[in-house]
Design a protein around this nucleic acid. Structure first.
Lengths: 195, 195, 195, 195
DNA sequence: GTCTAACCGAGACGGTACGTCTCGTCTTGCT
DNA sequence: AGCAAGACGAGACGTACCGTCTCGGTTAGAC
């Protein structure tokens, strides 16, 4: 079914996403307007509406394109891998200018099912997959308490530093490490459990 | 120092806050409009601008007035108190229609120092105080690992259920309990630590 | 030089002018509001601002479109033509609901050079041209005192009835005729001047 | 009948009128605001509303207080007196910053009977009286055509320079003199009328 | 090589909300 | 009762964007 007519320009897609990221970083999510993005990209507004139905869809696209999934460390020691990954994850969320944007979209998705689906399918799931794999590796190694499921472990390890950042507005390297290590230490197979 | 001129009407304050809460619940934070709030409260827009410089300040005021600090349980067993409180806290955040509003404002406060100050001073601090007290009681009882400070414990206990809610958009009673209990269990003074 | 973008709608121009005239007649110049005109024309306010920078420019446009230049009589007797024209002119100014509007704009133009230019160029000049021509015809016929220039004659003939209307708020047919005829009688070539 | 309560302050009346005149001169009639006048006079708005029902009544009051009736010259030659007076009158109207204000109010009075009454009673009539007296003196001297009544003469003499000013926005000394003298010359008892 | 459908920019359209200004009124405490 | 101060409901101001809709002009596959 070969489409007729002039095809959409991929350059234009890239220019718009880049412009959107610039605006998000400079002005934040609430201040982002379609007009500003189109203007900065040197593009007409209809070209944006042709591609994204709302500004939130555009922002989700921008997040997807802009925030690459973290690389999973593989040092051989799976718990160390998990800890380093969690610290890295939280620090990047807190340190990047698009961290707050991600939260804002997450909240907005609460009222908008189609946005939520797009977000979970293209943004959250791919990033969660690597985490899940990592935790499953740890469980398979017998390094983590087998009574806990993967989701619970994820929440216990990643939740504390993220919560800290939300509550205080900051997240230092030290705090992130302390929280993650405390969580992981507590989740390890009890020393005497198999003795 | 006798105030001159007509004093501001307290009834009006109440009517506006009530209208703001209604709009927040029905339409959400992003869709809240000064115009709509003023209209619903039967009030002119200037009366709002006289009191709150931006819609965010209004929303923070609404949160402060509307979300009462949770009652701290006191069963005699301090760890049980802490667990129940944390579960209650997370469930209310996830279950109330103003939960997402609080997160949205928190995120916006990241770019706006005056908003952040207002939020922390009148909303977060009073609610944090009861938590801190509760954890300090638990520490004093020797029920929690003394190597951890109060903030760390707070993040480890409250972070996981909140993170779960943010990530998945839901938080059941069961999940909240599981996460909080797992966290608290892990934080207790190691049984064999002094053996 | 091909115009880019969607062209402005001529229907809209007409609707707005018509609405403006209605409001001017019903409420008068001072009470005319951009909002009211836009509302009555079934048009958004920005569409008005796109065309006219201020309400005065809009009113001048309305005058230009609405008040057609008077037809010059041509009975063969040039002085009679002039007299009838002046009477007609003054009566229409005094009798039309937009007469006071014209004066109000004229006064406002005193403080606003761009408004004055617009008014003189598109409203006053075309209407003055027919008067000037008529007077020049009369001069050429030798029917008017050659010592007076065209502008002076215009002021002497048209000034009295207009002044009467301004001062008293009314202008009857009889008064207009009396004033104009007295003026013209006085301006005729003195009987003995060429004897 | 001793009025009860605190009497109104006459100083306040004066301060408000003075402030109104300042604003009229600086900003013009259209831009005059009750708020601005009250502010400049250092007075509360209610004090103004207690005295004048609308801004137009205030402006009329200001005109009355501010524009003193012209002095009538008395050189013995009554026609010269009339001519000098008319020139002076028109030049002051055209030259003073409150000239346009008077016209604006006059126009507005066309829609507002109570305003018109106030204006005619306290502003126009006293100024017209001296003109009427002067013209009657000239008629009594037999210097003016007896077939014309006082009002007609007034319009024929004063109308042309005022009309010139309205139409062109300017009025020079020379133009005013030319117009008035031409009018008066034409109104004199025809030399050959009784010969 | 046309044809032609979909793209592109520009920008007008009816709207909505913004934050501000002024209106005319009302409510304080003081004089 | 008058007064300054200033809050009140009302509503217009001029601006910024919204999402949609023409325009003239371009682009590239289908004929």
């Amino acid at each position: 079914m070969p489409r007729r007519g002039r095809p959409r320009s991929a350059d234009l897609d890239r220019a718009v996403i880049a412009a959107a990221v610039e605006v998000l970083i400079e002005q934040g999510y609430a201040a982002l307007t379609i007009e500003a993005v189109a203007g900065r990209a040197g593009v007409g507004r209809p070209a944006l509406y042709r591609r994204w139905p709302t500004k939130d869809h555009l922002v989700v696209s921008a997040l997807i394109e802009t925030v690459p999934p973290l690389r999973v460390p593989d040092t051989g020691e799976v718990l160390r891998d998990l800890g380093e990954f969690a610290v890295e994850f939280a620090l990047r969320l807190a340190g990047s200018p698009v961290g707050p944007v991600a939260i804002a979209v997450l909240v907005e998705a609460g009222r908008r099912p189609d946005l939520a689906e797009m977000l979970r399918l293209h943004y959250l799931r791919p990033r969660d997959t690597v985490i899940t794999d990592l935790i499953e590796r740890a469980l398979a190694d017998g390094r983590l308490n087998k009574n806990l499921d993967v989701g619970t472990i994820r929440d216990l390890v990643f939740g504390p530093p993220v919560y800290h950042w939300l509550l205080t507005g900051t997240l230092t390297d030290g705090v992130a490490k302390t929280l993650v290590e405390a969580a992981i230490a507590a989740l390890q197979t009890p020393a005497g459990a198999d003795g």
